[in-house]
Deep mutational scan, measured.
Amino acid sequence: MAAGGDHGSPDSYRSPLASRYASPEMCFVFSDRYKFRTWRQLWLWLAEAEQTLGLPITDEQIQEMKSNLENIDFKMAAEEEKRLRHDVMAHVHTFGHCCPKAAGIIHLGATSCYVGDNTDLIILRNALDLLLPKLARVISRLADFAKERASLPTLGFTHFQPAQLTTVGKRCCLWIQDLCMDLQNLKRVRDDLRFRGVKGTTGTQASFLQLFEGDDHKVEQLDKMVTEKAGFKRAFIITGQTYTRKVDIEVLSVLASLGASVHKICTDIRLLANLKEMEEPFEKQQIGSSAMPYKRNPMRSERCCSLARHLMTLVMDPLQTASVQWFERTLDDSANRRICLAEAFLTADTILNTLQNISEGLVVYPKVIERRIRQELPFMATENIIMAMVKAGGSRQDCHEKIRVLSQQAASVVKQEGGDNDLIERIQVDAYFSPIHSQLDHLLDPSSFTGRASQQVQRFLEEEVYPLLKPYESVMKVKAELCL
């Protein structure tokens, strides 16, 4: 049975990233139509530049190519590739079939990587351009969430054990800070992308030097003109047959890092959902379990974690691919890159769409948070109580021993009897502590235990987050809708 299948058929496997999760716009960027249309555009740009620099290419040939950029006979191309065992030459023939007058000058002087690699770089750039505003929107939604809850005390956790208090907004800023680093890295790697350009079979530009009869300047002009037509500021000066596969490492490393950030955020949300302090959106008709109707599973956060793990592992592909590119190139890269580049971007696209949807509907339960604080705060307040007693004339050592005994009794009630923490009640009825009984409410005010959390939130948002989001103001209103 021949390899390949009808990918629109229910009898043929289709990647869930495309069929179930990723956005239509990201799927289109990695589609065959987008790819092969870009090949034709690159052939047109090459012909236009070659004509401008004096090669015998007519206006009629150029116009014929322009008129057929979208006229792609995919069936013919597939048949040609089956016959020739070469995808680029299959599309040269297919393009030439609908451009008979231009057929002889299509791909003039070029090698397969002229269309293959340059198209990949265009796709990487455009895919990054799709991700950047999506990530900015996630940051914006979380920034709104953090600002609104900047002063809401909550129990902090280290080692997932109760620690000092923080605020809900401050905790959210930990998430935002990681995503801001990801946004900066995505922008950097996007701006650092260079075009492969017009380089020939081993990167020496020998074929173009021959076409222009040894004119170095025209060869350099050709490279520059096509690079500018493709919208790049610069091209690699040095290439082998391909652009260095280190570029793929750079791009997928940034995406993998984004995956790590999203995994951490969504894990926190899942843990908070278990504590009943916070939940992701839950639709009115949504079913959490087929057997347990009360369940409210954090399905979206779980999906993000599941896909983020996949995204983090994909960076190993370009690392290994770059390491086995012998001399000017081997074909070890080809099949692998067809999979890992598309999957990385479709996965990143999915987790950003999902995280935006989550961040637009996060639900906080202040009463649950308050109750958990009441359970733990008495123990945390013991040092403040000791200091207040010393100020009232008591002995630190005597007070410490009193607190120690009462704390152990209260802990026994919590752990052995399943009761509430009654340390404060014990202190309130103990005559030894009568000098500070009137101060206990103040000493137990949760806001006095959150330090500068709310001020940190305000400063972080104003100095770091809002300036970073400013270039994306025009796209901030787009909502994230999930079908599944």
Results as ranks from 00 to 15, higher is better:
L461D: 05
I105H: 12
R374N: 05
G361S: 14
Y294K: 01
Q455K: 14
A150E: 09
S253I: 11
A127W: 00
G104W: 10
F327W: 03
V115W: 00
V138N: 09
T239L: 06
A146W: 01
A235S: 09
A230D: 00
P100E: 10
T347S: 12
P16R: 12
P298F: 02
R296P: 03
D248T: 03
K246N: 03
H400N: 02
P378A: 03
I385K: 03
D120N: 07
Y294A: 01
N71H: 10
F345K: 02
N185M: 08
R309Q: 04
A348Y: 04
G5T: 14
D317N: 10
G393S: 06
S323E: 03
M65T: 08
S140T: 13
K246M: 03
F236Q: 08
A206Q: 12
G116E: 01
Q439M: 11
L84F: 07
Q439N: 15
A335I: 03
P298N: 02
T202P: 01
D441N: 09
E283R: 06
I369W: 02
S395L: 07
T204D: 04
T202N: 13
E473T: 14
E376L: 02
T201C: 06
E417T: 07
G418H: 01
G451H: 01
K147N: 14
R14I: 13
S323I: 02
G96C: 05
R245T: 01
K229T: 05
L132A: 12
Q205V: 08
P467C: 08
L46S: 05
S359Q: 08
L69M: 11
I287E: 02
Q286I: 03
Q325H: 12
A344L: 03
K147I: 11
V254P: 09
E280M: 00
M181H: 10
R85K: 13
V29G: 05
F95H: 07
M181R: 07
T111W: 00
I139T: 10
Y472E: 15
S15H: 12
V457L: 06
E464T: 10
A322F: 10
L307Q: 15
L271D: 02
K101G: 11
R188I: 07
H107M: 06
L130V: 14
I72N: 11
I351M: 14
H442R: 10
E148P: 06
Q51E: 06
M476T: 15
A260V: 04
G200V: 00
R40M: 00
A392T: 10
N353M: 10
K82L: 14
K415W: 03
R85V: 13
D333R: 00
D333C: 06
A273I: 06
Y21N: 04
K75W: 13
Y365H: 12
I72D: 07
F95L: 07
G104M: 14
A136F: 13
T167I: 04
L179P: 02
D216Q: 10
S334K: 03
Y114G: 05
T267W: 00
A146N: 05
A110S: 08
L53S: 09
S257D: 07
V429K: 08
D216Y: 07
A348E: 07
T38N: 05
E360G: 09
L444G: 03
Y365A: 11
K82A: 10
L252F: 08
R396E: 02
T227I: 04
K295A: 03
L482Q: 13
I287F: 00
R452Q: 08
T119M: 07
L209Y: 11
R20Q: 05
A322H: 10
A18T: 15
V254W: 06
I139F: 03
Y365F: 15
K264A: 09
Q439P: 04
G169R: 01
R452C: 15
D182A: 04
I403D: 02
T119S: 13
I369D: 04
Y432P: 05
G214S: 12
E383M: 03
S334F: 01
I237S: 07
H263M: 06
P471A: 15
D144N: 14
E283G: 11
T313K: 04
C173I: 02
P24I: 15
A103E: 08
E280Q: 01
A411K: 10
S301V: 13
G200C: 02
R245G: 00
G203R: 00
M76G: 13
R188C: 05
I385D: 03
W326Q: 06
A480R: 13
E328T: 00
Q456L: 13
A410F: 04
E81R: 00
E283I: 15
L131R: 00
E48Q: 08
T450D: 02
E401D: 10
T119Q: 14
I386Y: 04
V390Y: 06
L271V: 07
N274F: 12
I351L: 13
T347M: 08
Y13C: 13
D333A: 02
T52Y: 10
T58A: 10
R149W: 13
S434A: 11
L142G: 02
T321P: 03
D192M: 14
K470I: 07
R190W: 08
R33V: 14
E148V: 10
S434L: 10
V429I: 11
D182F: 00
Y472K: 06
L193T: 08
D223T: 07
G156F: 00
V262E: 03
D422C: 09
L440P: 06
F160I: 05
L461Q: 04
M292E: 04
H310R: 12
H86P: 00
K479V: 14
V457D: 03
V88F: 04
I385N: 04
V364F: 05
E343I: 04
D191E: 12
E148W: 06
L135R: 02
E343K: 12
L17G: 07
L352H: 11
